Amino acid sequence: MTPLHCNKQGKVALITGAAQGIGRAFAERLAAEGATVVGVDRQDIQGFETALKDLGAGDAHYARVDVTDEAAVEALAAQVLDRFGRCDILINNVGFTPREPLEQITLAQWRLVMAVNVESFFLTCRAFVPAMKSNAYGRIVNISSDTVGLVIDGFAHYIASKGAVIGLTRALASELGECGITVNSIAPGLTKTPNTFSMFPDGKMFDLSAQAQAIKRPSTPGDLVGAMSFLTSDDAAFLTGQTLIMNGGQLRAL
């Protein structure tokens, strides 16, 4: 028997931060499972819709949207619901990962990290949950980070924001459970993406991280897609309010 999480036909999935990295891998997996996929990011990207349709997506759409902008998120929701009539899966993947010591973090930088990593999640949930409630069905997955449970310096604003994501996940799980909506989070470890390569261009940090793990190889976006597929499926109907740490079994701080 084919697992239910391998079939997303008839489902509409929206993914923020979908242009590259983890978000793009999620979009491709959901497309291969037959979902209609809406990718959202701040940058222009060519060929997204065609590539996902070629993978098997029921339909695909790409929207350039700043998800920290309240009006833009509301307009996005109206556009998606007008075109597709529903939103079954919402993946809040967009993230900003600066590294600065505490004394050098300005209030403006702190607020930007919170806006991207927390407020955008709140805005998309608030915009799409009413449609999920009307269908008595929804799967929300918020991307947090394993740094919440580690001892690591230079990321006070980032770690605080990702801790807030876990809190938001649990709060919404409690509020929305009776509506047929599950809310969970995935907390990846250091994963090889264009964003993290820009932070660690020599690649040494990936190898260092791998040596602190039970599974001693660097993580890639492909390592996360199976967990996402399950959490956004009918198989996961009784799982909510949880954070799944996906870091290869990291055993110690770097």
Results as ranks from 00 to 15, higher is better:
N92P: 05
T97W: 07
V40T: 04
V113M: 09
A75I: 14
C87P: 06
E70G: 08
P3N: 07
I105P: 11
D153N: 07
S198G: 11
S229K: 01
A136G: 08
T232D: 06
L150N: 06
R29L: 14
R111S: 12
V37W: 01
G58F: 12
R252W: 08
T182I: 11
Q211F: 07
T191D: 00
L107G: 04
I245Y: 04
L81I: 12
S174F: 06
Y158K: 11
R99N: 12
Q250M: 11
L254C: 10
L208P: 04
F96E: 07
A31C: 11
R24M: 02
A253E: 10
A173K: 00
A236I: 08
L102A: 13
K11W: 05
R252S: 09
G154S: 09
T68H: 00
F26W: 12
G58S: 15
T169M: 00
P130Y: 08
M228P: 00
E74D: 14
K133W: 01
V183Q: 02
P188L: 08
T106N: 07
L224G: 03
G241T: 10
G222H: 06
Q79E: 13
V118P: 04
C179H: 15
G249P: 01
Q104V: 00
P3G: 02
F26A: 09
W110T: 03
N92I: 03
L231A: 06
R24I: 01
G249L: 04
G189P: 07
R126K: 12
A19F: 03
L208N: 13
G10N: 13
Q242L: 10
G203R: 15
N135L: 12
F197Y: 13
T106W: 01
G189Q: 01
I181M: 14
T240N: 06
G248E: 02
D82T: 13
L190Q: 03
F197T: 15
T182C: 11
M228N: 06
G58L: 10
C179A: 15
R83Q: 15
D146F: 05
V225F: 06
A236M: 10
Q46F: 04
F155V: 09
N93H: 01
E103Q: 14
A25E: 05
V73R: 10
A131V: 12
Q250A: 03
V40C: 05
V141Q: 07
N7R: 09
V113K: 04
D146W: 04
